[in-house]
Design a protein around this nucleic acid. Structure first.
Lengths: 215, 215
DNA sequence: ACGGAGAGTGAGCAAGCGCTTAGGCCCCGT
DNA sequence: ACGGGGCCTAAGCGCTTGCTCACTCTCCGT
């Protein structure tokens, strides 16, 4: 279905393409540790031992603990942005594109809830320069969602009084999935994605189509 | 308007009634520090110096740093629960009560966004026993919102396929306000509360009344 | 055969952490 | 007048933290 074989939203861990192997294990270990305890409560010894190596080995592949977080945060934010941009640029009515954006964005946050939790809730621990970089990606994500909503308003198929505020609300809804979603829980990523796509279409007052965004 | 003079949702800091004065200053300092940097990145020296005292003085009023977080988390969660319970138990249609709950819940999270950020996002740092206690309050909050939605569904004025999932979504929306709200930002707590009440009424498919929950 | 790069280790340093101790000041009931 | 509790500080203890250092092992091109 896709000309590019590179995986940007599949079920596997988003770190499959990192080399050497030890570096990949370190990132994966860091993601799990950061997600469980938070960045500041995680020690470099903890990360190293999860990756099956000595504390010193971490510094062969990454200069600092913060650089590990930066890698995770940067790649994660870019993946998330790609997802909404793909929906924004796809063909279809604004409702279809908005539903698609929400559905895949939510699904990503649910499937990769460990990574997503770090990406969405640990960015405050980044160094100032890295933080600014990541904030720029977040603004782009916000802009992508907003432009879909604006398209719907202009086309007269959405009824939104406060586009900016509603965009924030839509993103809130999606992002917060990373906080509460749990693999052992009641619903699957697909189910949550479908539910949320429907809720968002209602929020923007979409009319002239079914709730799932398909006319 | 209220027989009870005690403030449970006003604009002042929610810590006005703590005595002695030094203990109140410590809690307030801890709230600001935890909100800015997170629990684990905050040092007891930082809290003490913000409160204008020596590091050792903290331990006269609180046994540990974690106990400070526990006080903040417990009181904050109880305040939040009180707000939605009041809306649940008030008179009015389900739509009015749901709009009321969301409006005041969101307003609280926006007005007290510093406190709310600690309450909503730092509870993972609590000791196991305290954590369990706080989780129980959160479940009660979820139950209160869900019961309003269930009332609306039973009365035939809400159109909700997945009550549990929709409740989670509504709470997500409200809670996430604490993450992004900023006093210097574009909108006031009142504006966000009104906007979000309207969005939630749409999410539950409320009909037979205006969007603001008033028939 | 072998030198050098890459990848890893055990030991440990300086700094900072949560928290304790010993002691001092001030106010108040008797 | 004065003993005692409440409140506070300076100093510092024991420990953990992020990170470094000196060194070893393995692999590969020449």
């Amino acid at each position: 279905m896709d000309a590019e074989p590179k995986n940007t939203g599949g079920k596997a861990e988003p770190w499959g393409d990192i080399t050497p192997d030890a570096a990949r294990r370190l990132v994966s270990a860091a993601v799990h540790a950061f997600a469980e305890r938070g960045y500041h409560a995680t020690t470099t010894r903890d990360i190293a031992s999860r990756a099956g190596m000595s504390p010193a080995a971490l510094y062969i592949h990454y200069k600092t603990k913060e650089e590990l977080l930066y890698q995770i945060s940067k790649v994660g934010h870019e993946r998330a942005l790609t997802i909404v941009e793909r929906a924004r640029d796809s063909e279809g009515t604004p409702a279809e594109r908005l539903a698609d954006a929400v559905r895949s964005f939510v699904r990503w946050h649910a499937e990769h809830h460990t990574t997503a939790r770090v990406v969405q809730y640990e960015l405050g621990a980044l160094a100032e320069e890295h933080h600014a970089e990541v904030i720029a990606v977040r603004k782009a994500t916000d802009g992508a969602v907003r432009s879909i909503i604006e398209d719907g308003v202009k086309a007269g198929v959405f009824d939104v009084a406060d586009v900016r505020g509603t965009t924030v609300a839509v993103l809130s809804l999606c992002i917060d999935v990373a906080r509460w979603f749990n693999t052992a829980g009641r619903s699957t990523p697909d189910e949550v994605g479908d539910l949320y796509a429907g809720l968002v279409l209602r929020m923007v007052g979409a009319h002239g189509e079914h709730q799932d965004g398909r006319p």
